[in-house]
Design a protein around this nucleic acid. Structure first.
Length: 584
RNA sequence: GGCCCCGUAGCUCAAUUGGAUAGAGUACCUGACUACGGAUCAGGCGGUUGAAGGUUCGAAUCCUUCCGGGGUCACCA
């Protein structure tokens, strides 16, 4: 059984026996002992002073005596103020390590039978992916992995915004100015090519606006609107052009996704979903969930939920974004019967999702109580917000290329990589992407990120490559150590060093880290854990000799410890979508 | 203006959810390799946790007010 659980249960018993008070094991305040004090775990005893009617340090002393007497694993204790520090015997730790040594997927929880849809990325088809999408994609991917580790079945989804006047803008511009240019003819990635004509559209529209009176519509916009009408009327030529241009964009997106190591299980297209939701609105109009105004528009009153009145159908009967989202959620439920759903969308849409979730709840959807908006802060540049219109965006493909190049430059300065050219490229790719992904994922989703493209991402300190390096060190050790290892020898190793125990204390926490990160939809918890473990291992590696250990038992212990560290690091980084190199 | 987020070392981030003297990285200054590979380790410098009150054994964390930054309040998406 887990050591912290044992301590909790015994504290409950102790409090009951000593002070006749009932406390739950969840309420026991148990923390790893801070490193400036003696011990492994610390019980905070202040909360029991009322029931015991004694000074906290006396309670600590009495509890400590009780625990040492009743719990074999607890060797010793000391009390400082209201803090009871407990020392766990070495036998526990070597047994713990031995049990871990052959465990597959340590940290993963058993399947819990729950199904969750995670929606992320969800781009528009009129421009290439940029740094903002990168944060979204990394958060979505990592959250999906973490949920899987926590026992959920995850369906990774995106909804592609492939229709609307903005797409028609690119189409109009392409027809007028491209002379039939294609990705093949220009050598451009498809999404970049379409993005180029979206910019062309905006440039032309601005020029036309300058020559018009205020409030008049530029002719090119009129053309775009006309094209949208034709699209909606299923005009074969417009539809064919639309399909062709979108296929170019998807090929471009797929390339970027592949470079980021991301895949999806299900894709929705707005061209298929934009009409959904109307029926539900009309059906529930009678039930009084929605109401109709004199002009024919349909609304919902959410004032008692401290929200506003919200429009769900325009006076001409057409739907808005909200309507579509309601319909899409229901369609997904019909298909997947999910228990919950998470939307990874920027915090500018906080209000939208509050309203959406409230409406789905009022409609009585079974999954409505488990809807989450994984809301994240915008990525800004030092100069301010990213704006596609003014060209101040950091392109995703360029960024990926740059970080890999940076890893390469750095690696070549160091020199020592003795592998084939092909392997080098793969190593640099992994290092560069690790640097980028870790840089973004270590920050709590809620916080804004200011990203300075002029300063290349760090490769030293609290970074992805630092964590990779700890893994690489273990690989190097095992390359040197080729003989068979008798793992059971480690059980005879009793003089466990603090540096070794520190590692085990951290590893023991890993399952809890996964549970917590999954519950909070927060990959940064996993990122910080991976760094802590790598840091602790680096210190151990520096201070203590593994292959030239004093005894065979010590050597076996340290080799298994290293193996387990490497395995946990690999698992943790995998949850962040980061791959480990064997050398670097 | 109403509502919602954020504010911690020069910079980038933590703080086990109310616990011990607020910790890491970076930058700057030192020190450590004839090697399990230095993308490492150790030391130094750096803080009135935006401000002021309050709650209690104990507050970066909870409450109130204020200041600063951002978002949102469309028959846009």
């Amino acid at each position: 059984m887990d050591i912290t659980l044992i301590i909790r249960e015994q504290v409950v018993e102790a409090v009951k026996n000593l002070y006749q008070a009932e406390v739950t094991k969840e309420s026991v305040l148990l923390n790893p002992t801070r490193k400036e004090f003696d011990g492994d775990y610390t019980v905070v005893v202040f909360p029991y002073s009322k029931a015991a009617r004694k000074r906290p340090d006396m309670i600590g002393d009495e509890l400590g005596k009780y625990l040492v007497e009743h719990v074999e694993l607890i060797d010793n204790y000391n009390v400082i103020k209201g803090f009871l520090n407990l020392s766990i015997g070495n036998a526990y730790w070597s047994k713990f390590l031995h049990e871990l040594s052959n465990l597959e997927n340590y940290g993963y929880q058993k399947p819990n039978g729950k199904k969750i849809i995670v929606e992320f990325s969800s781009p528009n088809t009129n421009k290439p992916l940029h740094l903002g999408h990168v944060r979204n994609i990394l958060l979505g991917w990592s959250t999906s992995k973490i949920k899987e580790a926590a026992g959920f079945e995850v369906i990774k989804t995106q909804i592609i915004n492939d229709r609307g006047v903005h797409i028609c803008k690119s189409m109009v511009a392409w027809e007028k100015y491209a002379n039939g240019e294609t990705p093949a003819s220009s050598g451009m990635k498809g999404d970049k090519l379409i993005g180029k004509y979206y910019v062309t559209y905006n440039t032309v529209a601005e020029e036309q606006e300058k020559e018009l009176e205020d409030g008049k519509e530029p002719p090119i916009l009129t053309e775009a609107r006309a094209m949208l009408k034709k699209w909606e009327a299923n005009d074969p030529d417009v539809r064919a052009l639309w399909a062709k241009m979108n296929s170019w964009v998807y090929a471009g997106f797929d390339e970027t996704y592949a470079n980021l190591g991301v895949t999806f299980d299900h894709i929705d297209y707005e061209s298929n979903t934009y009409l959904l939701g109307k029926d539900v609105i009309n059906k529930n109009l009678e039930k009084g969930i929605f109401y109709r105004k004199d002009d024919g528009s349909v609304w919902i009153d959410l004032e008692d939920a401290k929200l506003d009145h919200k429009l769900v159908l325009r006076s001409d009967g057409t739907s808005v974004y909200m309507t579509q989202d309601i319909g899409t959620a229901q369609q997904r439920y019909e298909k997947f019967k999910m228990d919950s759903m998470a939307y990874v969308v920027g915090d500018e849409q906080n209000y939208h999702f509050k309203v959406l979730f409230e409406i789905l709840d009022r409609l009585g959807e079974s999954y409505a109580s488990d809807l989450v908006h994984l809301s994240y802060g915008m990525v800004d540049l030092p100069t301010g917000k990213m704006k596609s219109r003014t060209g101040t965006v950091v392109d995703a493909d360029d960024l990926i290329e740059e970080v890999i190049q940076e890893a390469r430059t750095n690696s070549e300065e160091r020199g020592a990589l003795e592998v084939s050219e092909e392997e080098k490229l793969e190593i640099w790719r992994r290092i560069g992407l690790a640097a980028l992904k870790y840089h973004i994922l270590k920050v709590h989703p809620k916080k804004r990120i200011i990203f300075n493209p002029a300063e290349s991402v760090d490769l030293q300190g609290q970074t992805g490559p630092y964590i990779q390096n700890a893994f690489v060190r273990v690989s190097a050790v095992f390359r040197k150590f080729a003989t068979d290892l008798d793992e059971s020898l480690l059980l005879k190793y009793t003089d466990i060093e603090q540096a070794e125990k520190d590692i085990l204390l951290l590893i023991r926490q890993f399952p809890e880290v996964i549970t917590s990160a999954a519950k909070n939809y927060d990959p940064s918890e996993v990122a910080h854990f991976a760094y802590d473990l790598a840091k602790t291992y680096h210190k151990f590696y520096h201070d203590i000799s593994i292959l030239r250990a004093e005894t065979e038992e010590a050597k076996a212990f340290r080799l298994v410890l290293s193996k387990v560290v490497a395995s946990v690091l690999k698992t943790a980084m995998n949850l962040l979508g980061i791959e480990m190199p064997e050398r670097m």
